[in-house]
Structures are given as structure tokens and as C-alpha cells.
Amino acid sequence: MRSLYISLVSEFYKSRKTLAFWAAILLPVIICSLVTFGFYSNSEKLVKMNYPGMLLWVQYIGATLNVMGMLIMPFYVIFMAFSVNNIEHKNDTWKTLFAQPLNKFSIYAAKYLYAILLILICLFLFAALSFSFGHLLQALVPKLSFNQYNPSTFLISSYTKLFLSSLGILSLQFIISLIWADFLKPMGIGFVGTIMGIVTAALKWQYAYLIPYSLPALALQVTRVKKGGDPLDFEIFTREIWTSLIYAAVLFTIGYFIVSKKSIK
């Protein structure tokens, strides 16, 4: 447990000056700001439409969430899985890392957990910023109806789903990035996978849920279907989420098997 904690602290220490770490913070700030700015410049129209509070929130949050779920989230996850491993590939530091008196599982699990943590931070910021920027919009344009509804449950459920549904991709990409040192393989496979995921999810192919890359989009589709109803209504642990979790657990175990047998050349 101690060596897991130590490895995790070290992961943070190593990456705190890298783009991978800052992306977790910058990405939500930039996207939420852009969406908020878009809403602000369109505020007259929005006031005219006179949406009820809930619908306004769903539209506002959905604007960020759709872009995220479809495209950015898979790529962000692919990038995270890549950069956590690449920091060792690039500096040729696997050998020193595994020559430390720490058990191999801790080193591996810390890397994996750190990638998850970055995604969690990123999504948390998305949710928190959506919430606060929405209220900021309300303060700037008092005629809007953001204050009529409390979106926290909707935000939490949606982003929890998005987070859980991305774990499958993370685990798969994590293994790919662990094995191959170059940039093109994980990115190439990830790119093709993501496109495939988007297409199969959009076409509502009945087996789309078996492709890890389509899970974020699928998870959000289910959310969207019911957006007219009570947003509290939707279930978090749907089939997509379970598939993602099973993928994550199985691939995490395989990854450890690879690490423990791996000879560092």
C-alpha cells in the first residue's frame, strides 16, 4: 500500500510540468469557457425562447457533454494512457523505475490509477465549471432561467457515466501504450477505434456496446433519450457501463501480467 502511494506521488511529481497534467485542467476550462461565451453572445435569443430552467440547463450542459462524449473524451483518454507511459519510454526510464525497491504491481497500478485520476479531475472540473459558469451566465444575464433549476444531480450522473464508460478505452489504450514506445501505434489504433465507435454508436448497431470506443457515446445517448423527462430518471449502471467496467478489470489484469513478465531490455 505504501509503495503504491509512493509511486502515485512520484507520478504526480514527474508529470506536473507536462502537457498531460495541464490538459486535465486546461481542457475543461477552455471548452466550458467557449460554450459559456457562445451562450452569452446568444443570450438575447435564449431569453426570447424563454426556456424553462431545466431545459436551459440540459441544453447548456449538453453542448459541452456532446462534444466531450463523442470526440474529445475518447481522444483525451487515449492521450492520457499514452502520456503516462510515454514519460518512461521517452526518457528510457523503465529500467530505473523497475530497479527501485518497489513491487511491480505498485508501479503499474500507480500509473494506471494516475491516468484515472487525471480523467477524474478533468471530468470533475467539467461538471464544476458547467455549474459555476451557468450561474455566472445567470448573474450576467438576469433574465435567463438558470436559477429555476438545480442541475447538480444531472451533472453528477452524466459525468459519472461518462467517466465510467471511458475506463474500457483507458485500459485498452494503456496496454497498447505500455507495450509500444512509439506515438503512432497507440494514436493510430485509438483514432481508428474512436471513429469506429462513433459510427457504430450513431448507427445504433446492436453490438456496438462491445466496442470500448463506442461506450462514451452510447452512454450519453441513453441520457439524451430521456432528456425531455426528469433527468433524475436515468440509470447510471446501464449495460454500457458494465461492459466498460468489465473491459477495464480484465485488461488491467492482463496489463499487470504483461508488466510482471516483461524483461526490460
Partner: peptide
């Protein structure tokens, strides 16, 4: 140990 080229994180 020091193995081959020293393993150093270049960005640190």
C-alpha cells in the same frame, strides 16, 4: 545502479 545511458527525466 547506473545502467547504460543514465535514465533521466529530461523535462525535470
Amino acid at each position: 545502479a547506473l545502467v547504460e545511458q543514465p535514465a533521466i527525466y529530461g523535462h525535470l
